[in-house]
Write a protein that binds this DNA or RNA. Structure first.
Length: 304
DNA sequence: GCCCTTGTTACGCC
DNA sequence: AGGCGTAACAAGGG
């Protein structure tokens, strides 16, 4: 029997139009609720990468006229990249999982954001602050920057990667062959295929970018919470209905959290990830465990 | 000043 | 061969 948990009171009304739009990946970023004010924002998972994609989309057609000296750890091929980029045109900005892809014709620049990477396009900072990251945009943490001269003329736009912890990477022609299908594109049939043969805990498997691309710690915890499945469950023990449930919750969840402002805005929000917190669905104590060297939060009652 | 945080990769083991 | 578990990395903030 399929387990579909109740939405917590007051938090889960859906309207038809919202339902429709949240299944359209092209509109995901446009759903961000403007003017939200929070002291932290989500870690760079699929939703944040999608916000960066939308922010950078305005540079398409523009010409790259400058690249500032870059942090060699974050930009391992900095010298080659600088000479290769100069004078090229931004052809397209796309996303696969958590990776942002900037097509400049001769090659593709891949941006991975690690834990604390942020992309700031002009004056637009899609994510003012990250959970576990510094609270303000600080030039000290700039690791890569290019200047784009817009196609239509007008003032040049700077595109800047800020990352205090330096786990972000700017790569030339990144190898995407190891990435699974984007989480936005996954349905029940595909998810069942991707999970087949896996034996580890479902939480670790869903976070594996080879299986499905785009889900990180916060999104996986939220998805399992919504689906009523314990993070420790061996993947091979999941039945067809449970896999269907995961797939059915996935895209609506991404749409809803995008609308609320990011990965941290789940019903199981970052504010709840501390000792003594109670499940917003049934009031049972939330449980904290380490799974695959990551902190998993789940409900001790309704996640089985 | 120790410990927390997570995305990704490297590596040893089975 | 390939899945799986663990460690390491980075570094600001609590």
């Amino acid at each position: 029997m399929r387990f579909l948990p109740q939405r917590p009171p007051g938090g889960g009304e859906t309207d038809r139009q919202g339902d429709h739009r949240e299944h359209d990946v092209e509109h995901l970023a446009s759903m961000v609720h403007d003017g939200h004010a929070s002291h932290t924002d989500g870690m760079p998972e699929l939703l944040e990468a999608e916000m960066y994609r939308a922010a950078m989309a305005r540079t398409v057609g523009g010409r790259i006229v400058a690249m500032a000296p870059a942090d060699p750890l974050v930009v391992p091929e900095g010298a080659a990249l600088a000479s290769g980029l100069l004078g090229t045109q931004v052809r397209a900005v796309t996303r696969r999982g958590k990776v942002l892809l900037v097509d400049v014709g001769a090659f593709v620049v891949g941006l991975r954001f690690g834990m604390t990477g942020r992309l700031i396009v002009g004056e637009h900072d899609p994510i003012p602050a990250l959970a576990y990251g510094p609270s303000a945009s600080d030039r000290r943490f700039d690791r890569w920057e290019v200047t784009v001269s817009p196609h239509q003329g007008g003032a040049p736009v700077s595109v800047r990667l800020s990352d205090p912890r330096r786990l972000a990477r700017v790569l030339v022609d990144p190898d995407l062959s190891g990435l699974g299908p984007d989480a936005m594109e996954v349905d029940g049939t595909l998810l069942a295929q991707r999970l087949a043969g896996r034996r580890g805990p479902i939480k670790s498997v869903l976070m594996d970018q080879h299986v499905v691309a785009g889900l990180g710690n916060l999104l996986v915890d939220e998805l399992l919470w919504r689906s009523g499945i314990a993070p420790t469950r061996p993947t091979r023990d999941l039945n067809v209905d449970e896999i269907e449930c995961l797939a059915a919750e996935l895209r609506p969840m991404l749409g809803e959290l995008m609308q609320r402002g990011g990965s941290h805005r789940g019903d199981l929000s970052v504010e709840l990830r501390r000792a003594g917190a109670l499940c917003p669905m049934d009031g049972a104590p939330l449980q904290r465990r380490n799974i695959g060297a990551r902190t998993a939060w789940s409900c001790s009652l309704h996640q089985r």
